[in-house]
Design a binder for these strands. Structure first.
Lengths: 128, 128
DNA sequence: CAAACTGATATCCATTGGATAGTATATAGG
DNA sequence: CCTATATACTATCCAATGGATATCAGTTTG
């Protein structure tokens, strides 16, 4: 009864051979690709929102529990910093967080081309 | 005991006023931002992979169940098409799927800057 | 002084994703 | 000819994540 290998076993057999596979897309997707992360970055980068409540109100569907967890993760990953001044909390992008604007612009461009009513998309294209 | 409004109720109160808020980043993130979607697109766009098994083997952690579901969703969203020729299945990017390369390139650039060992990152920058 | 707003946290349930095993069909080798 | 292997999946089951709601402690505001 020779047992066949499972999928995970196959992977463990194959991947040690590569040892360190530099895979920048995989890495950056891993850090930035979780739900809400890019939308929070957009609010901070383009709309200059800094407050918990502002970001929460600007993202229908986002709940306080999820926003709190995402902001904590983004701090751990060095994308944002949490500042307390005058008893008030403010979140600010780090330089690493600001570098994500190029990704946001790529999504913006794609969204304009594919997710707007055609007339609006044409107007937007002609302006750029 | 005047009940306070829930978060979801607040949203329903606010958002109908805006009726249609064109939000290209939100839309494109919604379609492309689910786990594995961008990595599958990368495999197809850059590595020219077309087969289920190729994509599966190229993404450690991705399981057949998830890949099958993601490919089906990506077909529904018009990102890929499923072709059967000669009893063999092949997946191909649609033009909409190919437009996602700009997003992939933005992630690539970010990943090179922030998720590679510094020496490797410098080498990669100087070549571009 | 009470209501409302701030930045959260706690509890609970639904959805999604991951690990593993198994299917049907086809081809290859001993 | 029978076994082994590959291909493209599907089926079960469990774990992790996300969403809805309520709540809280500490200001502000009316």
């Amino acid at each position: 009864m020779a047992r066949t290998r499972t999928h995970a076993e196959d992977e463990r057999r194959i991947y040690p051979l590569l040892a360190y596979q530099a895979d920048p897309i995989r890495e950056s997707v891993k850090w930035l690709g979780r739900k809400w992360t890019l939308l929070i970055l957009r609010d901070m980068a383009f709309l200059k929102l800094t407050r918990f409540g502002q970001i929460l109100r600007n993202n229908p569907g986002l709940t306080p529990r999820v926003l709190a967890r995402r902001l904590r993760q983004m701090q751990e990953e060095g994308l944002v910093e949490r500042l307390v001044a005058d008893e008030k909390v403010a979140y600010r992008l780090t330089s690493r967080g600001e570098d994500a604007v190029f990704i946001l612009l790529a999504f913006l461009r794609y969204g304009i081309r594919h997710h707007l009513p055609p007339q609006v998309a044409r107007d937007a294209e002609s302006k750029s």
